[in-house]
């Protein structure tokens, strides 16, 4: 990992009144890696994600993506640069079919959104792109389902599929395993393991089994501060992390 990071977060700070939600945060995401961000509830993970994706403006610090400073860009612009994301709480067009949701991603990738006359659902280019992503996550048999009829886990998969259609340079995944169940998270773990070859993943996750089996590096966020960054083993052995996050008695 000698090359430049795809995503570089530098001295990012954000406070809400007296509450400092993120304090002087530095994170790097390099090609080919899964960098996990963990931390107890209320540590400021969601705030940080918002600052990175453009939902919140930071008080201080910068975000660099693919060598470019993006701190002043909005969410849509950051997505167009290649930042693909999935949400903590599934954020899909619930009235649409599964395929339509993925086609949205394909339209976004192509960028010709002000096309008023051609039927998008009959556009081979869009459909092919969408179908490929559905096959990748294993949802191809559900393409005609209404999204609101999907299970929680399937919605998660669908979010990943939509992100895939964008061919992003990096993924930001906010708790993709949440509520998946053992079988589901095992499947997704295998999938993400492969996905990192396509683009690196900044993974916010509570499922420690998944984190420890997947992550190349882990950053630990506590009370808005990164208290440690390192390999799985380093983090496991870090006494500060053990007391702050994992609890003294937990054996890892």
């Amino acid at each position: 990992m000698t090359n430049n990071p795809i995503l570089a977060v530098r001295s990012l700070t954000k406070s809400f009144g007296g509450l400092v939600a993120s304090k002087n945060i530095n994170i790097d995401l390099y090609a080919g890696e899964i960098h996990a961000l963990i931390g107890p509830n209320g540590a400021g993970k969601s705030t940080l994600i918002q600052q990175i994706t453009g939902g919140l403006t930071s008080d201080e610090g910068e975000v660099y993506f693919d060598g470019q400073e993006i701190s002043s860009l909005n969410t849509a612009a950051r997505t167009r640069l290649g930042m693909g994301r999935t949400f903590q709480i599934s954020s899909l067009a619930m009235e649409y079919t599964v395929l339509q949701n993925v086609v949205l991603g394909a339209i976004g990738f192509r960028g010709k959104v002000f096309d008023f006359f051609n039927n998008a659902m009959k556009d081979r280019e869009l459909i092919n792109r969408a179908e490929t992503a559905l096959v990748q996550v294993g949802l191809e048999d559900f393409r005609t389902y209404r999204t609101s009829d999907l299970s929680h886990g399937q919605r998660r998969q669908l979010e990943v599929a939509v992100a895939l259609t964008l061919s992003p340079k990096a993924f930001l995944m906010d708790e993709p395993m949440a509520g998946l169940g053992a079988e589901g998270s095992k499947r997704l773990t295998g999938f993400l393991d492969e996905l990192r070859k396509q683009a690196p993943i900044l993974l916010i996750e509570h499922d420690m089994d998944a984190v420890f089996s997947l992550a190349d590096r882990i950053s630990v966020l506590v009370y808005g501060e990164i208290i440690a960054t390192g390999s799985v083993d380093e983090i496991r052995q870090n006494p500060q992390v053990r007391s702050a996050y994992l609890g003294e008695e937990d054996t890892l």
Partner: peptide, 19 residues
């Protein structure tokens, strides 16, 4: 059309459209 689909998606979920 692409526009119509994206517009109706925005009505359902603005975050999705931004993403």
């Amino acid at each position: 059309s692409s526009f119509g689909m994206m517009l109706q998606a925005a009505r359902q979920n603005e975050k999705r459209v931004q993403a």
